[in-house]
Design a protein around this nucleic acid. Structure first.
Lengths: 347, 347
DNA sequence: ATGTAATGGGACAAAAAACGTCCAGCTGAA
DNA sequence: TTCAGCTGGACGTTTTTTGTCCCATTACAT
């Protein structure tokens, strides 16, 4: 870190926290504008008074404007956010954490965003935004993109820019409809991605839990075969990482399945695979979907998951993740991962 | 100014003041160590509680240590002071002020130090310190240095480093004993300079107020003639700038003199010359001393004066000052000068 | 057009923090 | 040994911050 900044922090130890707080508030306003005090205080996880104090200040500084519909970030405010973006990551030690995580997980890149999405819902939107930017930067080179479901993936689709359309983009739902709500299904997400970017979409509607016979039969269907072929040509895989148990419950898995998942010591889940804490596959949903091998040979992989509650799952998944994977997460998760591993040796 | 810093200030407007306050306190401790709360509060112009709050913080940050004899700046504290030195000048807008003053006064360099020595006595010491550093940097090239009297000059001599002695340095009292107290006479100051730097000294003991006849006679004395010759070879002139009336009163001038000074509209005084607000000489003390022409042809001139009460005097003196003059002053004086001239055009 | 749910701003008592001001006990220098 | 000056503790008082209302206004959906 900049020695000047270090000296400033020595002389003003309260600076970092204050800066982080205000920056986060300003950022949240930006993302949700126009927004009122009360809604903002829920989103930011602070009391209304606290929000009020800070927004009063931000208004005095002309970083936000208060309209009757809510508060809006001013032009100056956007400039401030932009100027401080990298600095905030540095001052929060995020850059240092990224380096440590990178070597710990053995992957090419880690992107950590401020705060903890477990505490502050708006952080998830921020993760989504940065993941979206990163993904967009890949569009020039990579056209076939497989996407999974989940609320994190939904956050990404929300933040995809719909400015420059590219009809050559092809989005592929990485799996059939999960037992989850429609909004967070891979199919829905893939469609949303396509809609935002102007690309086309290939969806796959298929029950999650098939009997062995039905599964075999489906696999021979031409539509499904074509889909499986597409998976082979995937350029980018974008997926979330879930906690094994949570996902299993969400999916209304059979007791037998839950038992296998549990006894196998499953910790994490991604694109239908369950991994134990050593990163070994202990179970996989029997449905049509992208194969682990297909994911691992993809030129680019974005794994997106935030919140300290996901730390164990992330760690589990990355035990055997492909080295070209990029992890996009938040401070809460990153901190928790580093705490969990501080006693162990390197992987 | 750095756009990052600007953004920080937008988000934390209280930062600047807080930083300045703490920096100043730390700096004052450094200059006066070991020092106690009460002495420090007087020097810094704050209440004891205020000082206590801040020093408690500084101690927690391990920037100072509290011994029974008083507070002392730690190694880390010195590092912080050093790292922040330039930044503080920038953040206070001092660098911008220096530029404006430079062009306003038509001289080559202006050095402005934080705060106002009218309010905080310690600032004078800081001015002295920086003037001393600047002067020392000239020692390599310039050996014959003429110095005047005054409390500001005394502050410089206090801060001259006595580390590396240089016996080739030659200090010359720019004038005979002024009516002032011995401690602040040019002779005393010159001796002090010589003592600190290891150089030699030429002093000039002569009453300030001579009759015309006595003056003529003294001027023919060999000792005096030699002195006047020395003035001709001066490499550096270091002098303060005073308020004309104050100086006149200090010098117990005759009523006739005071009348001439007053009616002439004298505003400033330097090395025995009185200047009106247009920078014209309206009177000069009739005693042996360096001539205005000799000052102006010196390769280097340091004019040192601080405090907003000196603003008018500084402005007056610089109406006709040599362009190679360097002004060393403080924020208070600089601000006042700029306010005084903001309505007028450039000189 | 109309009702509703959100907004910012005003207000105020309660709680917390900061402040001014002492004092005790210690230490180093005279 | 005395004494001045120091730190750290203490505490009642003042000031600021905080939690929590209400209210007029406005955008928006019905």
């Amino acid at each position: 870190m900049d020695p000047l900044t270090e000296a400033q922090q020595k002389l003003m130890p309260e600076m970092t926290e204050l800066l982080k707080k205000r920056y986060q508030i300003l950022l949240t306003i930006k993302m949700e504008e126009p927004i009122g005090r009360r809604a903002l205080s829920e989103l930011a996880g602070s009391t209304e008074r606290e929000i009020r104090k800070e927004t009063d200040l931000l208004r005095n500084q002309q970083l936000i404007n208060a309209r009757s519909a809510g508060m809006v970030v001013s032009e100056q405010g956007v400039a401030v956010l932009d100027a401080l973006k990298d600095f905030m990551r540095d001052v929060s030690g995020l850059i240092a954490m990224e380096k440590r995580l990178k070597s710990l997980l053995g992957i090419s890149r880690v992107l950590i965003l401020p705060q903890d999405s477990d505490d502050i819902p708006a952080v998830k939107a921020n993760i989504g935004k940065e993941a979206a930017r990163l993904l967009e930067s890949l569009f020039a080179q990579h056209k076939k993109i497989a996407v999974t479901g989940g609320s994190t993936m939904a956050a990404i689709s929300k933040e995809l820019s719909s400015d420059k359309k590219d009809s050559t983009l092809q989005f592929i739902a990485a799996r059939g409809g999960l037992g989850e709500d429609v909004l967070h299904q891979a199919n829905t997400i893939a469609s949303s991605f396509a809609g935002k970017t102007g690309g086309s979409v290939k969806t796959l509607y298929l029950p999650d839990h098939l009997s062995a016979e039905a599964y075999e039969m489906m696999m021979r269907e031409p539509v499904i075969k074509e889909m499986m072929n597409l998976y082979d040509q995937t350029d980018v895989v974008v997926h979330g990482i879930g906690n094994a148990e949570e996902i299993a419950l969400q999916r209304q898995s059979s007791t037998e399945e839950v038992e296998r998942i549990r006894s196998g010591g499953a910790v994490s889940e991604a694109f239908g695979y369950y991994f134990d804490k050593e990163g070994k596959v202990v179970y996989r949903i029997r449905t049509a979907g992208i194969q682990l091998e297909q994911v691992q040979k993809a030129p680019a992989i974005l794994a997106v998951a935030g919140g300290r509650s996901k730390a164990k799952a992330i760690l589990s998944y990355f035990r055997n993740a492909a080295p070209q994977t990029v992890l996009i997460t938040d401070e809460g998760a990153a901190q928790q991962i580093l705490e969990l591993t501080q006693n162990r040796e390197e992987i």
